[in-house]
């Protein structure tokens, strides 16, 4: 038996909203440690990885590790029926083929809604991602990151992120012209939610398809800060820290020929 209760259905809704554009079917792996999910897009350019630890839930029970294969679009149909502050309980039998989602309206205890979603058998490839030291890490407000990517995407299909010791620069070039946004490192490191924290051992510049970067911005409502971890010639690791877990992307860079 698996049963997990989230005090705010919106947490799960935001997670699922953030993966809807690139990822069709996902396995949510439930264990005694919490719920985790890893999925690659069809083009094998982006990988999303999520972990919600047991502490994220107001109650949590998982007798046996199970994998809940879900179609993201179907899951969203159900999650969108909920109010943000509804209490969400997810339940599945060990050998069942359904995930039950129950929503309780905190302002109207007399209303309870219940949905059953059919589980899918998803045969998924997994990436073995080695522990990686990143030589450049930029941490900034997620709203700022979202704005930069949104603004620059209008200029070109490709965005270069250039991290140096004193700042980070995002550049786009396209048919209509070019644009860039530079952010200088703040001195109030780590203290302020608005600060730009830059830790660069070695300057790095990597280019990405802006469509995929846009996808990594969709998680901005999940956390106030995002960290961009880069190293020469390997995928960027973009991570949002959740209260009890993380929501992250690996994104393969463009390789110059």
């Amino acid at each position: 038996m698996f049963e997990a209760k989230l005090n705010e259905a919106s947490v799960f809704k935001k997670i699922v909203e953030s993966v809807k554009d690139g990822f069709k079917n996902c396995n949510f792996d439930c264990s005694e440690e919490g719920i985790s999910m890893e999925s690659m897009d069809d083009a094998h350019i982006a990988l999303v990885s999520m972990k919600l630890g047991v502490e994220a839930f107001s109650s949590y029970r998982c007798d046996r590790s199970i994998s809940l294969g879900l179609n993201i679009e179907s899951l969203l149909k159900v999650l969108r029926t909920a109010n943000n502050n509804d209490v969400l309980t997810m339940r599945a039998e060990d050998d069942g083929d359904l995930l039950t989602l129950v929503f309780e309206d905190s302002s109207n205890p007399d209303r309870i809604s219940e949905y059953n979603l059919k589980l899918l058998n998803i045969d998924q490839e997994h990436m073995s991602i080695p522990e990686q030291e990143y030589t450049a890490t930029v941490t900034l407000p997620s709203s700022e990151y979202q704005r930069i990517i949104r603004d620059l995407t209008q200029l070109g299909d490709s965005i270069t992120i250039d991290a140096a010791k004193d700042g980070v620069r995002f550049t786009a070039e396209g048919d209509i012209g070019s644009g860039s946004v530079s952010l200088k490192a703040n001195t109030n490191v780590g203290e302020d939610e608005k600060s730009i924290d830059i830790a660069v051992e070695e300057p790095v510049a990597l280019g990405f398809n802006s469509k995929y970067l846009t996808q990594t911005c969709k998680a901005a409502p999940l956390a106030p800060r995002v960290s961009l971890n880069m190293c020469k010639r390997i995928p960027i690791f973009i991570s949002y820290k959740l209260q009890a877990g993380h929501f992250s992307f690996f994104l393969a860079p463009q390789i110059s020929e």
Binding site: H126, S128, I129, P235, A252, S256
Partner: peptide
Amino acid sequence: GAMQGRLEDFFKIK
């Protein structure tokens, strides 16, 4: 020109 890399160019698939 730049070519789009794929994740398996960098990581192994299990």
